[in-house]
Each structure stands twice: as C-alpha cells, then as structure tokens.
Design a protein around this nucleic acid. Structure first.
Lengths: 167, 167
DNA sequence: TGAAATTAGGAAGTATACTGATATATATTG
DNA sequence: CAATATATATCAGTATACTTCCTAATTTCA
C-alpha cells in the first residue's frame, strides 16, 4: 500500500474484468466437457451411444450383475441417473435387468450378447475420441494433463454424488 | 474410484483391450465438471444460482442489451439453452428482456438492478470455488493446468455449439 | 421489386445430472 | 419378537445441453 491519499477509491472494482469467463477453470472445464462429448458422438456416430452410456457398458462388462447404486458409484453418476440410463439401455436390448435373489431390494444389471458385442466394437472409436481431444497438446503435456486431472478428481471424489451419498 | 494419490498410475495405457474409465480424459473431465459444479453450488449457496446462470449474468454485465444468440456464443452454450436460462432469470427478477427496435426478430436481455447487485456480490464466492477446485495442485501446476485447458478449448472451440472469442 | 436465402427465436423432444419424497425389503436392537 | 433404522429402487421435479422443426423478420440478389 503505497497510496497516501485517503480519498475513497473504487471499493470493489469491476473484478469481472480481472477474471473473465475464459480464464475461469470452471468455465474451461465445462467447455472441454462439451467438446469431448461432441467428439465422442462424432467418432461413435454409428453406435448412437453417449459417453456415459458407454461408460456404463464397459463397467457392466467388468462387473456383471452389479446393483444400480454400486454401478452409479463406479461410473461417477447419481443413482437416479443410473436407473434412467439403464432403463434406456435395457429398452435397446443392450442390458438386461433382474431382481437379486439374495436381496430382493436390488435390481442387478448385465450386458446382453448384443451389448457385449457393441461394447467391444466401440472401443477403438472411444479411443479415437480420447486421442483427438488431447491432440492439441504435445505428447508430454498430454501425459501431464491426465495426471493433473487424476489428482484433481481423486482429491475431491466425494463431491457430485459419485461416491456414497447418504441423505 | 479407489485409486490413491500415491498409487502407480498409467495414464495412457496402450493396452488395446481395456482402458479403464479412470484413465480416460473424457471421464475425468466429466467428473471434474461435476466436482466444480458441486463446489460452486456450495460456495454460492446463499445466491441459489448455477455456474452457467452466473456466467450469463457476468456476460450481461459486460454486454447489456445483447441478443440471445450472441450471448449463447459468449457463454459457450446452445442458443436454445440460453433462452431457457434467460427465461428463468427473468422470472426471478434478475434479468429483463425486451424486443429490439432495430431488428424485431431479436430479443435483448439486460441485468435488472437486483441482477447487477447479485452479480457483484457473488464474485468472491465464485473465486473461492475456482481456487478450491485447483487447490489440490501446487501453484505452478495450477497455472500450467489452466494454460493447457485454454489450449484444448480454443483448439476445438467450434465444437459443442459455441463460438469462443476471448477479447 | 419480389422471390429466395438467411437469421432470430420458439416449441417439442431426448439425454444427462441432481434433489427430495416414498415404498418396500432387509438389518438392527430393545 | 416387535419396533426401528437402514438400504435399494422408483417417481416427480428442476436445470443443463442439445437436436429438429417451425414461424417470423430481415437481407440478398436476380
């Protein structure tokens, strides 16, 4: 504080000029998510599946007969959202759902033969979308970027209803 | 979802069979967007506004009497989405909308006095959410991360129905 | 000048993402 | 064992984000 005069200056200057939208991490991450979504849909056009739907399919492939809450936690979505998506995937014949014998509250999901086939066929397209998203960065930066993303997500993984959320 | 910070990570496995969700940039960006959204809502709880709503308010503050399509482009959302959000903000008395005299197709939006007041009062809370999101990274990495985000977004800005022009 | 193309906004529909409430099944405990 | 607490799924409601189709106003150009 080198200012000597005590005249009242702008008490709260127009700080939105100091930090415009395009310099805010939250804005950039939202836009990058939109961009990846668009790239994914473009690369996977023939399959007509969204990134989250494909995430659920790959998770079901690794954990057949999983319940909806566990699946939602694995994929990082809300349980209510997971139920919606599973209903659509079931309607399309990619997933089958059956009540659990062990715990009749649970509804277990698994891939159908068609779901398994689609999931495997989509893998390369998904990979192309990932690569394309990061392609503006030089390879060593791509790696650093992924590492930072992992750190940021794992440090705050409890947020966003992704992991166990008692009401 | 159980990976620890100090666990060995393989960000870009070349294994053609399985690239787990946790190593996919698209998945991590979606999760980080959820996390920022949750942090923003938490920091800005008293205002009951979402990140996108606040983005529109700050943009209206810099460009009063803007049309909906230009506004949507500035904020990086779809024009149909912008119309929805403006309708809600108008309903809450934060925004007023009136037809343009110059071009009667256009509907122009501007902040109300209350909208202006809220926007200014929210600035610090928004900043806290930004800082909190990046806090797991050391300061020099925070800067590098933002730079990479900007590069990735500007390189693919044509995707996701937004036109992005930092001024 | 008048027809065609373009542009702005809206309506309807779908998908993602979350909150809150409820019904039912299971688990706990007094 | 009965009362209570917890867990699972579903439903209703809201917000974001996009698509397609539509109307109306403006601009272009033949």
């Amino acid at each position: 504080m080198k200012k000597q005069d005590n005249a009242p200056m702008n008490p709260l200057p127009l700080d939105s000029e100091t930090m415009p939208l395009w310099s805010r991490a939250g804005f950039l991450i939202r836009r990058l998510n939109q961009i990846h979504y668009a790239m994914f849909l473009s690369e996977c056009e023939e399959f007509d599946l969204t990134p989250v739907q494909y995430g659920i399919l790959t998770e079901l492939r690794e954990h057949p007969d999983i319940d909806q809450i566990s699946l939602a936690q694995e994929v990082g979505i809300d349980r209510s959202n997971a139920a919606d998506i599973l209903r659509r995937l079931e309607k399309r014949g990619l997933v089958s759902r059956h009540p659990s014998q062990r715990d009749r509250r649970m509804k277990l999901s698994r891939l159908t033969a068609e779901g398994e086939r689609i999931t495997l066929r989509m893998y390369d397209s998904m990979r192309r979308a990932q690569d394309k998203l990061l392609s503006p960065l030089p390879p060593e930066d791509q790696n650093a970027f992924i590492m930072m993303l992992m750190r940021l997500v794992s440090a705050n993984n409890h947020l966003g209803r992704a992991v166990f959320h008692p009401t």
